[in-house]
Lab assay of single mutants.
Amino acid sequence: MATADDFKLIRDIHSTGGRRQVFGSREQKPFEDLVDLGWLKRSSVDSRATHYQITERGTSAAL
């Protein structure tokens, strides 16, 4: 179930172009929650960072 923080984060991601790069596993937790909701997808993972991209469902949630 989505929380107020989830909606705040997806709106922030949407307003800044729909993509986010995250460093460190602790910082990934809120983004992984949005992946579980179907609002974000992991577009790539490298040794230092994970890249996320907003989905259509995420765009709808952000509006």
Rank of each mutant, 00 (worst) to 15 (best):
R42T: 06
D12R: 09
T55I: 02
L63P: 01
M1Y: 13
R26S: 14
F23T: 12
K8C: 10
D36H: 13
H14L: 13
E32R: 07
D12H: 09
G18H: 02
R11H: 07
Q21K: 14
R57N: 09
W39T: 00
A4P: 13
V22R: 03
I10R: 01
D12E: 14
A62Q: 02
G24Q: 08
H14T: 03
Q21R: 13
A62F: 03
H51K: 08
D46R: 05
G17W: 04
L34E: 00
L37C: 03
K8P: 02
S25Y: 10
G58D: 01
Q21C: 15
F31K: 01
A61W: 04
I13N: 00
R48H: 14
A2G: 11
R26V: 15
R26D: 15
S60F: 14
H51S: 13
R48C: 13
L34P: 01
E32Q: 10
Q53F: 10
G17M: 05
L63E: 08
H14E: 06
D12C: 12
L34C: 04
A62C: 05
A2T: 05
S60W: 14
I54M: 05
L37F: 06
F31P: 00
T59H: 07
R57D: 12
D46A: 07
I10E: 00
S43E: 15
T55K: 01
E32H: 06
R11M: 11
T50N: 07
Y52W: 03
G58L: 00
D6S: 08
R57I: 12
V22T: 04
E56F: 08
Q21I: 15
H14D: 03
E56C: 09
G17K: 05
D12T: 07
V45I: 11
V22P: 03
W39K: 00
V35F: 03
R19E: 13
G38K: 05
G24W: 06
H14R: 06
E27W: 10
L40K: 00
F31A: 02
S47H: 11
V35P: 00
D46V: 07
S43H: 12
R19S: 13
W39I: 01
R26C: 15
A2W: 06
S15E: 12
L63H: 10
V35N: 02
M1L: 12
F7V: 07
Y52D: 01
F31D: 00
E32S: 07
D46Q: 08
T16Y: 06
A4Q: 11
R19D: 07
Y52N: 01
M1W: 12
K29M: 07
A2M: 05
T50G: 05
R11W: 12
T50V: 14
V35G: 02
H14I: 06
G17P: 02
R42Y: 06
D33R: 15
A2H: 05
D12W: 12
S60Y: 13
R20V: 15
R20W: 07
R42A: 08
R19P: 03
K41H: 11
D36V: 15
H51T: 15
S25G: 09
R42S: 06
M1N: 12
S43A: 14
A61P: 01
E27S: 10
D46M: 06
D33E: 08
T59R: 12
W39M: 02
I13D: 00
I54T: 03
E27V: 07
S15G: 09
S47W: 09
D6T: 05
S43R: 09
A2C: 07
T3D: 05
R20F: 08
F23M: 13
S44D: 08
A2E: 05
R42W: 04
A49G: 15
S15C: 13
D46S: 12
F31C: 04
S25R: 10
R20H: 05
R42L: 09
F7D: 02
P30A: 09
G17E: 05
T50S: 07
M1C: 15
V35I: 07
H51R: 09
I54G: 00
R19Y: 15
I10S: 00
R57S: 13
D5L: 10
T50E: 04
E56V: 09
D36S: 14
T16H: 10
E56K: 10
D6R: 07
L34Y: 01
E27M: 09
D36K: 15
G18T: 02
K8I: 11
M1A: 12
T55D: 02
W39Q: 00
T3L: 05
D46P: 05
A61V: 09
T50D: 03
R19G: 08
K29I: 07
T16M: 09
D33T: 15
T3N: 08
G38Q: 05
Q28Y: 06
K29H: 06
L34A: 02
Q53G: 04
K41I: 15
A62S: 04
Q28R: 11
E56L: 10
T50F: 09
D36Y: 13
Q21S: 15
A2V: 06
D36Q: 14
S43D: 12
L40M: 04
Q53A: 09
A4C: 14
R11Q: 09
T16C: 10
I54F: 01
R48E: 15
H51A: 10
A4H: 10
D5S: 11
F23W: 09
S43I: 15
T16K: 11
V22H: 03
R57Q: 14
S44H: 15
G18N: 03
L9K: 03
Q28S: 08
S25K: 13
T59Y: 07
H14S: 06
E56D: 12
G24K: 09
S43W: 12
G38P: 00
L37Q: 03
T16G: 10
Y52Q: 00
G58W: 01
G38R: 04
D6N: 13
I54R: 00
S15A: 14
H14F: 14
G58I: 01
K29L: 07
S43V: 15
E56M: 09
I10Y: 00
L9H: 03
T16S: 12
I13K: 00
G18K: 02
V45S: 11
V22L: 04
F7Q: 04
P30C: 07
G58N: 00
R19Q: 12
T3R: 08
A61D: 02
G38N: 04
K8F: 08
P30Q: 08
Y52E: 01
R19L: 10
G17H: 05
G24C: 10
G18Q: 02
P30H: 07
A62D: 02
W39R: 00
H14K: 05
L40H: 01
I10Q: 00
V45F: 10
S47C: 09
L37S: 02
F23K: 10
G17D: 06
I10D: 00
Q53W: 09
E32F: 04
Q28H: 07
F31R: 00
R42N: 04
T59G: 04
A61T: 04
E27R: 11
L9W: 03
S60A: 15
S15K: 12
L9A: 03
K8S: 08
E27G: 10
